[in-house]
Design a protein around this nucleic acid. Structure first.
Length: 1165
RNA sequence: GCCUUGGUGGCGGAAUUGGUAGACGCGCUGGAUUCAAAAUCCAGUUCUUUCGAGAGUGUGGGUUCGAUUCCCACCCAAGGUACCA
């Protein structure tokens, strides 16, 4: 034994010195980087070394630390970004390359519910695992800037941003978010009639006096309708199984994205984010950023901008026939002049109207509105711009004169309104900019006026349509069953049917309605609307194909131009008028825009789509029945989650209204709870907390005992008798995307305790230069974070309104599953329990199936074991074999070798139920598994752990192989077998520097020039290619290039430092550990990380000869080495003289010879 | 249905502005080395073939001296989205 050991030990030691010991090398350099803080990025003021260096910010989408740890698919993007970051350091940039954890989330909480373990504890453990795994791969992360969304020092600022949102409103005039104080100032001075904000749509108009008279509670309630984050009763997606609401992007095909649980619509009071205010800017911003097209497309689909027109249709009530109203003519003539000092001024002003006034007057006095208006008219003691006395409607246009005395204006409005006048006002810009919309608004006001003696009842159905050009094709209207007008307009005869239908629709779940798109259903309401142009009555139906939540919840149905309308009309035998010239609509609707010529449409006849659109919108606006409009599909985002493991809101409730906690007292820490489930009375998990009330006097979280009112959050408690300053805190928490919507800014100054990041840091790093992550975040994280960034930009808190200049989606790495095939022989005759479990090797099975033969009959070539086994089986049926006789079963991929052979003994141990299984092997005596590419997942036993790869092949091999698999953006299957290629490349690389005796390190600093020529060519070819590849994020091809370079240099027996030293730098971003080691061996004492990238010099690639491909009719037949100095004629002569040319031509005379010097020769003929 | 991306050997993939299709690697075959295995090294490996050559980048057309690359039509796969008016 001793003898043997001695004999073996000596050579191994010798071998050790020469071979590539990746485990040692990698551990050594990972330790070095951590100790030397090699990758710590510095904010200004910079070290002398970095002075003047441009910044570069490389970011990965941070991971959610799941309990399963990393598999080889996860680090793909991190490796790519790490290569880029390291490359940029070589190029002299000051690089910020941070990493952190999106550590709030559902899985930790689900786990807590099941095991009772605190999510913070399991999250901490998971993070440790992640960190250990990440460290092993050798990333150049600056860990001093690590962020965790669940860390109170981080979520303090998430809460702070929430408060900022709460304290802001969106001003459409300035087209940005502003502090709520600017809105209050306006309210105090002039009420809300002139405010143009993105806000709730149920806001009533009030004047300054009214505002000032409101109680603080009333004022707060009104402001809530304007704030960028607001509390409101909204229809939400409630997932009973998860016990929480979900955002639209968390629902896939009607079920929850996580877990696949059903989701129902439910009304709940929730925090929402007014992201809709940013719809247009989010869309526009896409043009300024370099993001993948599919990602941009899904964002613009999600935002869903559509251009069209709002058109309103009068409801004709059968109860009130036309002309039944009071005759109006006489009533209008009354002209009550109020005498006063202002009379003269009124005359003067009438003579000198502003441009806007003049324009509006022009419109009002022309008989378009069928009603008499007066201008600059005296009412009481005031001059009003325009008045319609019969309808008591006053119209004001903002001129310079009025601007100077806004307070008086508002007081005046109040007095006038008390006299029964309604005052509406427009700005000069509105009148000049869109007179038709103004007229349309006035017309609607006239309709709604209390003294209306118009034709209809006053009810109008507003519809949004993208095809107003087809308005003459309308043959019915359809309302969503939930539409508010339905109950009002339904006739008595139809009442029963309508109510029954509404009930039936409400019962159907969202999923039902989605799954079943084919069934056509609907009911006639009995009511009619009037066509605004033809004046024809149009039947009004309800149908669940119209969604209450989109547009106005009503459509003008044009069956000839819309397939859904068409199907509906066919089903209910409604008329389908054809308004398209030369189009057959007997089978289906015609939705094409480009080829359209409109007909049967009055003044639109003969017009193509574009012209018809222009004309009809003009006419609609002229008639005052509508206006051009842009509509968005995107809704406001629900921001509350009924979960424990998320950011608590910095909110308490006083009198049922939300109050923000002053930022001084942040963070509001997540309280401890006994159970992570909802409370028995259905409150969110935070309802279990006993220490969860806010003491507004001492500004601290206190036990619930202090609460006088055990008030429901969000409801007004009018019976509150006593106010001790202790109030209930919000019970919801923030959603997963809260913390991830701004973390990229935090990295710039991650440890700042007084600000979310300092101004200097924000202005220095500005934005992310390269952002890498998965495309699954396209409509979630990536849209919300752009929204928050724009908001922070509006508030002057960040310097740019798009935070990531370039984004790359890395493709998924798929697993290669392995299958063993269980043979289901003699199914009928033998009881399952008695049956032997037999697995058949894939190649045997394929053969047997192909030959339609049973195994026994084609076993001649099988090994002894298989024959004996079959001999002992008496029950085999002599049947034809089919695929269905074999059941594929997943086998763990770690039990398979590179030749797809199963380790049978390991397999038996892996699954105890197969410990007695038998195997039919091929004639080589091995069991071959089947392989299939699937998503990498635990349940498919195809997960490959990077730790095992690092252990066996090293981190550098893993990094190279992940890149080598294929283009970064594409999905590609992982197959561990292939890693031997890059691994032996690294060994070859190592060898190149260890050509000394017994593999000692040897590099020559004085090589002969002849030796250099070829080597320099290889080196510079490589520099050029690698630099281009990194620029195109084509990392797979640069790995090939390295392989070619090392193969060539090995063949050249290159030993020269002049070549081998720059080569190490080229490879260093990809395989940093081996590069550091070789760099040190080359005599350097500092890390390679900032060594300047070698400069490409074209002169080394200069060639005097070219191997020309000689083609005949475009097909390459042979090659010829020719000097590049030759002229076209000389080339032609040389080529024609070649014997193979003559052989190819076989006596024919070429018609033409194409010569592109330096490229090709093509002989035609 | 619509939008997007893609389709090249047994496999992953390469081919830069239209100019030698299959680089590089895996796997496979044969050989060297070894008692043997592993490791390493060398040669071959798109298909057909009468060994001269011929065909070939999802299918069918087109433009061109020349097309994986450009144009038209279609087929298939993946991802996104969907009674969105």
């Amino acid at each position: 034994m001793c003898f043997l050991t001695l004999r073996v030990t000596l050579p191994i030691e010798k071998i050790n010195r020469m071979s590539y010991h990746f485990n040692e090398i990698e551990a050594k350099w990972q330790k070095y980087w951590a100790e030397q803080k090699t990758f710590q990025a510095s904010n200004p003021p910079l070290s002398r070394e970095l002075e003047g260096a441009p910044k570069f910010y490389v970011l990965d989408m941070f991971p959610y630390p799941s309990g399963a740890g990393l598999h080889v698919g996860h680090p793909l993007g991190y490796i790519a970004s790490d290569i880029y970051a390291r490359y940029k350091r070589h190029k002299g940039f000051n690089v910020l390359h941070p990493q952190g954890y999106d550590s709030f989330g559902l899985p930790a909480e689900q786990y807590a519910i099941q095991t009772g373990q605190h999510p913070a504890v399991t999250t901490e453990e998971n993070i440790k695992t992640y960190r250990r795994q990440l460290d092993k791969i050798g990333f150049s992360f600056d860990w001093s800037r690590e962020v965790r969304t669940s860390d109170p020092n981080y979520y303090k600022w998430t809460q702070w941003i929430f408060i900022e949102l709460f304290n802001s409103w969106y001003n459409k005039d300035s087209d940005k978010a502003e502090d709520i104080s600017t809105l209050i100032t306006i309210f105090e001075k002039e009420g809300n009639s002139k405010v143009k904000a993105v806000a709730d749509d149920d806001i009533e108009l009030f004047a300054a006096e009214q505002w000032n008279a409101f109680s603080s509670v009333e004022q707060q309630a009104i402001l809530l309708k304007y704030r960028l984050t607001y509390l409101s009763e909204t229809e939400v997606n409630w997932c009973p199984a998860l016990g929480t609401v979900l955002a639209n992007d968390e629902i896939v095909n009607g079920v929850s994205e996580r877990g696949g649980h059903p989701v129902v619509r439910k009304k709940m009071k929730q925090w929402s984010m007014r992201i809709s205010a940013y719809a247009q800017r989010l869309l526009d911003g896409l043009n300024t950023i370099d993001w993948p097209q599919p990602l941009k497309d899904s964002q613009s689909n999600w935002i869903g901008r559509s251009e069209g027109a709002m058109v309103s249709f009068k409801v004709l009530s059968p109860a009130l026939s036309e002309g039944k109203g009071v005759q109006s003519a006489n009533y209008l003539t009354g002209d009550p002049e109020f005498a006063g000092v202002n009379l003269e001024r009124a005359k003067e002003m009438r003579a000198n109207p502003t441009k806007a006034e003049a324009l509006l007057w022009e419109q009002l006095k022309s008989k378009k509105l069928d009603i008499k208006f007066r201008q600059q008219h005296l009412i009481e003691a005031y001059i009003v711009d325009f008045v319609c006395l019969s309808k008591k409607l006053i119209i004001e246009v903002d001129g310079e004169i009025h601007n100077t005395k806004k307070e008086i204006d508002n007081e005046r409005s109040l007095i006038l309104e008390s006299k029964g006048f309604k005052v509406i006002s427009f700005t000069n810009e509105e009148v000049l900019g869109n007179i038709n919309k103004v007229i349309s608004t006035i017309k609607r006001e006239l309709e709604l006026a209390p003294l209306s003696f118009g034709k209809g009842l006053g009810d109008r159905i507003e519809v949004f349509t993208t095809r107003p050009d087809t308005i003459f094709g309308v043959s019915f209207m359809t309302l969503a069953p939930e539409h508010e007008l339905v109950s009002k307009i339904t006739t008595d005869e139809q009442k029963e049917a309508v109510e029954k239908y509404i009930k039936a629709t409400a019962k159907r779940s969202e999923l039902d309605r989605m799954a079943d798109v084919k069934t056509i259903s609907g009911v006639f309401t009995g009511a009619y609307a009037e066509h605004p142009f033809s004046k024809a009555p149009i039947p009004i139906w309800i149908g669940d194909y119209v969604l209450a939540g989109y547009g106005t919840g009503a459509v003008m149905s044009v069956p000839c131009g819309d397939q859904r309308d068409y199907d509906f009309a066919k089903h209910f035998n409604i008329e389908i008028p054809n308004i398209f010239e030369g189009i057959d609509i007997s089978k289906e609707a015609f939705a094409d825009k480009e080829k359209t010529i409109i007909t049967n449409s009055d003044f639109l006849n003969g017009l193509p789509y574009k012209k018809a659109m222009k004309t009809i919108i003009y006419e609609i606006e002229k008639l005052g029945v509508g206006y051009k409009k842009v509509n968005f599909r995107m809704r406001d985002a629900v921001f509350s989650r009924q979960r424990y493991w998320g950011e608590p809101f910095p909110v308490y409730y006083k009198n049922g209204l939300p109050q923000m906690i002053d930022e001084k007292y942040l963070p509001i820490r997540l309280p401890e709870v006994e159970k992570y489930l909802p409370t028995e009375d259905g409150k969110p998990p935070l309802g279990n907390a006993t220490h969860w009330a806010w003491d507004a006097k001492n500004n601290s979280v206190v036990p619930n005992d202090g609460l006088v009112i055990s008030a429901e959050r969000g409801t007004t408690d009018k019976e509150s008798h006593e106010d001790n300053g202790i109030y209930p805190l919000e019970l919801n928490t923030m959603p997963g995307w809260a913390g991830s919507s701004w973390y990229f800014n935090r990295y710039m100054d991650a440890n700042n305790e007084t600000e979310f990041a300092s101004k200097e840091a924000l202005h220095y790093w500005k934005d992310v230069d390269l952002y890498i992550g998965g495309s699954e975040h396209a409509t979630g994280h990536l849209l919300y974070s752009r929204f928050w960034q724009k908001f922070l930009f509006d508030k002057g808190l960040v310097p740019v309104d798009e935070y990531a200049k370039k984004l790359i989606n890395q493709g998924m790495i798929l697993g290669t599953s392995a299958f063993v095939y269980r043979w289901e022989y003699s199914k009928e005759n033998v009881a399952d329990t008695k049956k032997k479990v037999i697995f058949v090797s894939k190649d045997v099975m394929d053969k047997v199936i192909e030959e339609r033969n049973i195994i026994e009959n084609s076993t001649k070539k099988f090994n002894e074991h298989s024959i004996n086994l079959l001999g002992s089986l008496k029950e085999i049926e002599n049947d034809e074999n089919k695929w269905s006789d074999y059941t594929p079963i997943h086998a763990d991929v770690s039990l398979i070798n590179t030749s797809n052979e199963l380790d049978i003994e390991a397999f038996k141990k892996w699954r105890p139920e197969y410990k007695d299984a038998e195997f039919i092997l091929n004639d080589g005596g091995s069991y071959i598994v089947g392989r299939e590419v699937e998503k990498m997942s635990k349940s498919k036993y195809n997960v490959v752990n990077p730790d095992a790869i690092c252990e066996q092949y090293g981190a550098d091999s893993l990094r190279l192989y992940e890149m080598f698999l294929g283009p970064l953006e594409q999905a590609k299957p992982w197959n561990t077998a292939g890693i031997t290629g890059v691994h032996s490349f690294l060994k070859k690389l190592w060898k190149l520097y260890h050509s000394g005796e017994n593999g000692a390190f040897q590099v020559s600093s004085s090589p002969s020039l002849g030796e250099l020529g070829e080597g320099l060519k290889t080196l510079h070819k490589t520099i050029k290619k690698v630099e281009e590849d990194i620029g195109h994020f084509s990392f797979n091809t640069s790995v090939s290039t390295f392989m070619i370079a090392v193969n060539e240099l090995t063949a050249q027996k290159c030993r020269s430092k002049l070549i081998l030293e720059p080569l190490v730098i080229l490879i260093s971003p990809y395989a940093p550990h081996i590069a550091e080691e070789l760099w040190q061996k080359l005599g350097h004492t500092e890390s390679i990380s900032r060594a300047p990238f070698p400069k490409f010099e074209a002169k080394y690639l200069a060639e005097s000869n070219k191997t020309y491909p000689i083609s005949f009719n475009g097909k390459m037949r042979f090659t010829m080495d020719l000097s590049l100095d030759l002229s076209k004629e000389e080339i032609e002569t040389a080529v024609m003289a070649h014997e193979k040319t003559q052989a190819q031509l076989q006596g024919r005379i070429p018609k033409k010879v194409i010569i592109v010097p330096g490229k090709i020769v093509n002989i035609v003929g």
